[in-house]
Amino acid sequence: EAHAAIDTFTKYLDIDEDFATVLVEEGFSTLEELAYVPMKELLEIEGLDEPTVEALRERAKNALATIAQ
């Protein structure tokens, strides 16, 4: 499951495998979680700032909209 989540994140969020791995290690496994989890939870991840989190959430929401079509 972790590998599938990493693949999904790299494909749809335009991030590298290392960043995707950090997200999975922090407990995220779906685009929905990244799109809708409280921003505070993402900001608790070391190295993430508000602009990065906002961009990540926007990419996740856009990916979900694209997949739904």
Rank of each mutant, 00 (worst) to 15 (best):
E32C: 09
I67Y: 01
I67A: 07
R59N: 08
A20K: 01
L13S: 00
T30C: 05
V37P: 07
M39G: 06
V37M: 10
G47P: 03
L48N: 02
L64Y: 01
Y12F: 10
F28C: 02
R57E: 02
L64P: 01
V37H: 11
E32K: 06
G47T: 06
E32S: 08
A4L: 11
L42H: 04
D14G: 13
A65H: 11
R59Y: 03
A65M: 08
A68Y: 03
A65N: 11
A2F: 14
N62M: 09
R57S: 06
V53G: 14
L48C: 04
D18T: 12
D14Y: 08
A65Y: 04
K11Y: 09
I6T: 06
E44T: 13
M39K: 11
E26V: 14
V37L: 12
I15C: 03
A2I: 13
T8K: 12
L42V: 05
I6Q: 05
T66K: 12
P51A: 15
T8A: 14
F28T: 01
D49Y: 05
E32W: 10
F28S: 00
A55K: 13
L56S: 01
T21A: 13
A4K: 15
V53Y: 07
L34Q: 00
D14R: 03
D14M: 08
E50C: 08
E58G: 05
D49E: 07
F19V: 11
F28N: 01
E32H: 10
K40G: 12
E25T: 13
D49L: 05
L56G: 00
K11A: 07
A55C: 09
E54I: 15
V24K: 05
F28R: 01
L23Y: 00
I67V: 08
E58T: 10
I45P: 02
D49K: 05
E25H: 11
L42Q: 03
K61F: 05
I15D: 01
S29I: 12
E33C: 08
K11P: 01
G47D: 06
Q69E: 15
I6E: 04
E25W: 06
F9G: 01
I67G: 07
I45N: 03
G27H: 03
E41S: 09
A55D: 11
D18F: 12
Y36S: 15
D7Q: 10
T10I: 15
E1F: 03
H3R: 15
R59Q: 09
A60P: 00
F19I: 09
E17M: 12
E58K: 10
V24M: 08
E1W: 02
E17S: 12
L64S: 03
Q69K: 14
G27K: 02
L48K: 02
T66E: 15
